[in-house]
Write a protein that binds this DNA or RNA. Structure first.
Length: 570
RNA sequence: UGGGAUGUAGCCAAGCGGUAAGGCAUCGCCCUUUGGAGGCGACACGCGAAGGUUCGAAUCCUUCCAUCCCAGCCA
């Protein structure tokens, strides 16, 4: 093979799989045959909320890496806190991961599956004199922990004999003690500059019903004492998490080393942030609970289910995840990139249809009364195989109110008195007069003439028509509900607030507007989940919650890119 | 001098001692029966700053600056 060919191949390869620091690590591991070339990642959500687009980035990363290196990915629910976790959440998480296009096959696990083993490991640590039962209250533990700059103090219970620890821990498990009365702690270093190493709590007493283990346990392991061990049990090779766990890595390593168990490598990357939205489960939960939005899957929510209902496709989200990249630099990605990704995807697949959001009636004065014609529309110019359909035309039509201006500015090439415009796939019309409301002066109707020679929108005389607008026959138009969405937050970074305010003060009061719009007849029977482009307006998706048979409700996924809006704004 | 991390364009992000990829956004032009889509082009004399090493530095060294994370019996 020539050098030239080699070079091209290498470059193609690079384009397909953008490099990132995690791949660098894996490549090195592959080179040294670290796990016999085996790659096993995992996606470990806590079932305490719905997945959002930040999780999608992690899902795409974990499943994507495994796929690329011929490995596998486990879905593991990190369910060590029964107070916050619910079965509803595990169901939604499974649905969302599948919908995104990933398959964990039979590798569905729960940290709670390992409670027995984790308990045994706790006993092992006690026997090694590396763990002890502590009777300090939560408050006292905090006081003993010291501060960021000062070392902590050892617990008075730190040197309890092994036998006493064993006995107490067994009785904790049996339920002899009330919540919060005792904990099991690791014996590490109260003077460590890393607070996570200052005798972290391993187990706490929680008489709470667990969504899977019920009342079998009343002591539950903390994240730090469950996560790495779960990774280890599953023989995860690369345990990818977000930056805030960087400080936990020494602890993660300490447990694996001390327990002498399989030692996965924890790797941290920067979580996703997107402008004009919040991406934390705590905040999303608050938005739901305080009813700032309808539900977790409200189309304004950045949740996977919200985006799905809004009309986003899994492919668009996957492309987005790839485009934002993976690094350790904290960042705030422009919402415009996400929107670009849906448009890019929907442009190729969505059928074009006519809808008029804000109708203005037009009477074509020289069109025969009572006459109707069927006009042939191209379903998708991006894909001729999608064919054509027939749409009725008549003397009275609706056009978009914004497509007419009495006193048009320069470069406005839509309708105005004396000007011509093309009705998409129909006729060229010229506005000859307007009818105004005698009281308000508002234009309520346009009187136009059509050119019978321009059927289909063609101009046999070769005359150039600048503007093409969408329209609907008054008689045939259907009126349906359309929901227009705007950003849920008014600020690029909703978390940036003045003294005394919270991100909730940045909520956009106009993030949802519900209107009745005119649509072409075929849309009456549109089914939930179906996606369309309303020509010149945007992409719309039939809502899965509010639609009824023959009464679909449309959600605007995203507007079309609007060059005119930019010109008009100048 | 608590500890841990990060600074490359408006926003992301490659780059791994050989002279700044790519995407989004933006701005031009072309094309167009969607002011959509598409095509072409422009867009860092510069890599947080200052010194140093080197024939050569975004890459190595030193110092400084900025930002983020950590004091849950949350994950």
């Amino acid at each position: 093979m020539s050098d030239e060919a080699n070079k091209t191949t290498a470059e193609d390869e690079k384009l397909k799989t953008p490099s990132n620091f995690i791949k660098d690590i894996i490549n090195e591991d592959m080179r040294t045959n670290k796990h016999d070339g085996r790659i096993n990642t995992r996606f470990p959500p806590e079932p305490n909320g719905y997945l959002h687009i930040g999780h999608a980035k992690s899902i795409c990363l974990n499943f994507g890496l495994a796929k690329e290196y011929n490995g596998v990915t486990n879905l593991r629910f990190d369910d060590t806190n029964p107070c916050k976790e619910e079965t509803e959440y595990v169901e939604s998480i499974k649905e969302d991961v599948s919908w995104l296009g990933f398959d964990w096959q039979d590798r569905e696990f729960f940290a709670s599956d390992y409670f027995g083993q984790i308990y045994e490991w706790a006993i092992k640590l006690i026997k090694m004199e590396k763990a002890y039962v502590c009777d300090l209250t939560a408050d006292e533990i905090r006081q003993h922990r010291g501060t960021l700059k000062e070392p902590g103090m050892e617990s008075p219970y730190r040197y309890r004999p092994v036998e006493e620890n064993l006995d107490l821990f067994a009785r904790m498990k049996k339920g002899e003690f009330p919540d919060g009365s005792r904990t099991l702690r690791a014996k590490i270093d109260m003077a460590s500059p890393n607070l996570n190493m200052r005798d972290p709590v391993l187990y706490r007493i929680l008489h709470a019903e667990h969504h899977r283990t019920g009342n079998e346990w009343c002591i539950y392991p903390m994240y730090d004492f469950a996560h790495g061990q779960s990774d280890s049990i599953e023989r995860i090779t690369h345990s990818i998490c977000t930056l805030e766990f960087e400080d936990h890595r020494p602890l993660y390593d300490w447990f694996c080393d001390t327990l002498e168990i399989f030692h996965p490598q924890q790797i941290e990357f920067a979580r996703l942030n997107i402008t004009y939205t919040v991406l934390s489960k705590r905040r999303l939960l608050q938005l739901v609970q305080e009813e700032h939005v309808e539900s977790w899957d409200d189309p304004r929510m950045p949740t996977i289910s919200g985006l799905r209902r809004r009309g986003y496709t899994a492919e668009a989200i996957r492309n987005f995840a790839e485009r934002v990249g993976v690094s350790k630099a904290e960042s705030m990605v422009d919402l415009a990139l996400l929107e670009f990704c849906v448009r890019e995807n929907l442009n190729k697949t969505a059928h074009r249809v006519m809808a008029v959001l804000n109708p203005l009636k037009v009477t074509i004065v020289n069109y025969p009364d009572g006459q109707e014609e069927m006009m042939e529309f191209v379903n998708n110019p991006e894909n001729p195989d999608d064919g054509t359909r027939l749409v009725p035309f008549a003397k009275e039509i609706y056009i978009e109110r914004t497509d007419f201006m009495e006193d048009p500015p320069k470069k406005f090439y839509r309708l105005s008195i004396g000007r011509e415009v093309r009705l998409r796939w129909a006729y060229v019309i010229k506005c000859v007069d307007v009818v105004k409301d005698p009281n308000t002066g508002e234009v309520i109707e346009l009187l136009c003439e059509y050119d019978p020679l321009t059927k289909g929108g063609n101009t046999p005389d070769g005359r150039r028509i600048q503007g093409t607008i969408h329209w609907l026959s008054v008689k045939h138009a259907q009126e349906l509900e359309v929901r227009l969405y705007d950003n849920l937050f008014m600020k690029e970074n909703p978390n940036e607030v003045e003294e005394g305010k919270t991100y909730l003060d940045n909520i956009n009061p106009d993030s949802l507007s519900i209107i009745r719009a005119k649509v072409e007849p075929s849309l009456r029977s549109a089914k939930p989940g179906e996606k369309y482009q309303f020509e010149r307006l945007g992409y719309f998706c039939v809502d899965s919650k509010h639609s009824k048979p023959n009464e679909p409700v449309f959600n605007r996924t995203v507007t079309l890119r609007d060059t005119w809006a930019k010109i008009a704004a100048k």
